[in-house]
């Protein structure tokens, strides 16, 4: 009896220790970057151009990260929502839905560097686009599309049966029910999921190395709105090295005296963005949930 009680106490202690260790590691990482980047992060750093001779800035890289993120979401969210509607509302069981599920699992298992290779073959070489923001966004879309589909499917499945039956019983068509009853109720879940996913897209680098490129961007003229001109930062065809890729590149080249300082600060920016995406997702999810349930 004594021994089993000791075992219980020891095991409980060990489990607490593991939890404290893991949370401490995370806390230490966040604090590490905050301290390491103090003094470097400034408005000039966030918005300035990169430089070989000074700390410079990360403005264009941040721009490209956001640009590719938005482009990827534009490509995947609508398609993903439609796909999710099929999977949750129409698919059921059968060979086709099974094929789709298997494909989703296969795609999301593919290492992102391999997706990068695929993007290189298709969006860089086959299309003769060279390295472009669009190529990067398309590569990221490959594994984000099934993610968005799955996310929508889950949000839709979480909507109670009664809501559907209530609407169908009024003689509305299935699509009307989905469009006006089920989908609105699923919106908070979808939005939360999209933001969390966005946080991951934002930090992704491996799939972008060979698709949107690793070249240090030139000075951007943000007033140049010509979408067809690859020199315009607004054009989907501009070479778009992102912040994450930039950190990797600085370290792989090992050049420059400011590598450490720039990388610390840039990594801090990435970590802070991840935190913001997380907090944003939680906050917005809660607000939307309240609005959706309150308005009815």
């Amino acid at each position: 009896m004594k021994r089993t009680l000791y075992a219980d106490t020891i095991a409980t202690g060990a489990l607490w220790a593991i939890a404290i260790l893991v949370v401490t590691i995370l806390g230490a990482i966040i604090l590490h970057f905050l301290f390491a980047s103090v003094g470097t992060i400034s408005l000039g750093f966030l918005f300035g151009d990169p430089s070989d001779t000074s700390v410079g800035g990360i403005g264009p890289l941040l721009w490209n990260s956001i640009y590719i993120l938005v482009l990827t979401l534009l490509l995947t969210v609508p398609l993903g929502i439609l796909g999710g509607i099929y999977m949750a509302e129409y698919a059921g069981q059968g060979p086709i839905p099974n094929m789709i599920r298997l494909s989703q699992e296969l795609i999301s298992s593919v290492p992102s560097i391999v997706v990068g290779l695929f993007g290189l073959a298709l969006f860089v070489n086959a299309t003769h686009w060279s390295f472009t923001a669009l190529g990067g966004a398309l590569a990221l879309s490959i594994f984000n599309l099934p993610l968005m589909t799955r996310l929508t499917e889950q949000a839709l499945r979480a909507v109670p049966r009664d809501e559907r039956d209530g609407s169908l019983a009024l003689g509305t068509t299935k699509w009307q029910t989905i469009r006006h009853v089920v989908l609105p109720l699923a919106v908070p879940g979808i939005v939360t999921g999209v933001i969390l996913t966005a946080g991951r897209i934002f930090g992704e680098a491996a799939a972008l190395l060979f698709t949107s490129g690793v070249a240090t961007p030139p000075h951007y003229d943000y007033l140049d709105f010509s979408l067809g001109d690859p020199r315009s930062p607004w054009s989907p065809f501009h070479a778009a090295t992102t912040l994450s890729v930039y950190i990797w590149k600085l370290n792989s080249e090992g050049l420059g005296t400011f590598v450490r300082q720039i990388s610390d600060a840039a990594a801090a920016v990435l970590v802070i963005m991840v935190l913001l995406f997380n907090l944003g997702a939680r906050w917005l999810g809660r607000v939307l949930q309240r609005r959706v349930t309150g308005a009815r």
């Binding site: 990482i29 969390l196 991951r200 992704e204 970590v271 991840v274």
Partner: peptide, 8 residues
């Protein structure tokens, strides 16, 4: 934790 990017 899961959101911390690979390069970081």
């Amino acid at each position: 934790f899961v959101g911390i990017p690979s390069v970081v």
